[in-house]
């Protein structure tokens, strides 16, 4: 059993990186066909960090972003948060509506729905492929959406695991659209028990 995030060894971190990479790869493929352009994702980072440093690494607390959040339940409990900034949003809007925006407050209901839908498809592809690979049964909630300071959105999964840990485990991936790096990040934050279950399924639980 893994009692806390700090207990993970190198082999286990590698295994987690491997499944994250399967999930991210599938999300990228789904987005590629939706946006009719090549979407790639870097090999995901698996990092364990203090709350305050997590916020810094994700671009500073007051950066405004659009966040789509889905809660996971079943064999895996946790939160998946998909953060998108204007450059990625414009890739989506260009492809769906053939338009772009300069500011977040120009996003209307139609644009917002499209972003939620795209986000939800990315998230579902990620989780479904990860769940299939690890033979886990994972349910996804309806997506929740907000445009605000990214720092405050990241504290949502942190409060969720706050009673268990002072550190947060982030599985994150950066997207590239048509060869260009865009500010779009998928963060998966599983709770400690689910992480143990996942490692057991992958055969690397001590």
């Amino acid at each position: 059993m893994v009692a806390s995030y700090e207990d993970l060894n190198e082999l286990q971190l590698d295994a987690i990186r491997e499944v994250a990479s399967i999930g991210a790869g599938n999300a990228a493929t789904a987005l590629s066909s939706l946006l009719s352009q090549q979407v790639k994702i870097d090999v995901p980072n698996v990092t364990l960090m203090e709350y305050s440093s997590a916020i810094e690494i994700l671009g500073g607390p007051e950066t405004i972003a659009c966040g789509i959040m889905v809660r996971l339940s079943g064999d895996m409990n946790g939160i998946i948060l998909y953060l998108q900034e204007l450059d990625f949003i414009n890739v989506v809007l260009k492809s769906v509506f053939n338009k772009t925006v300069d500011r977040y407050d120009e996003l209307g209901e139609m644009e917002t729905s499209a972003l939620i839908e795209i986000g939800n498809i990315g998230i579902s592809s990620y989780i479904n492929s990860l769940a299939a690979f690890a033979r886990m049964d994972v349910q996804l909630s309806v997506p929740a959406f907000c445009i605000n300071m990214a720092g405050a959105m990241i504290t949502v999964p942190m409060t969720e695991i706050g009673y268990e840990s002072n550190k947060i485990m982030l599985l994150d991936g950066n997207f590239k659209c048509g060869g260009q790096k865009v500010s779009s990040k998928l963060l998966l934050v599983p709770d400690v028990q689910s992480l143990s279950a996942l490692l057991a399924r992958l055969g690397v639980n001590k």
Binding site: G67, M69, R71, V142, A144, C146, A152, M153, V156, T159
Partner: peptide, 15 residues
């Protein structure tokens, strides 16, 4: 504040 509202999910919103 409540950053995200997930329909039918009280646990998260109440924090």
């Amino acid at each position: 504040a409540q950053m995200f509202h997930v329909p039918g999910d009280n646990h998260l919103g109440n924090i």
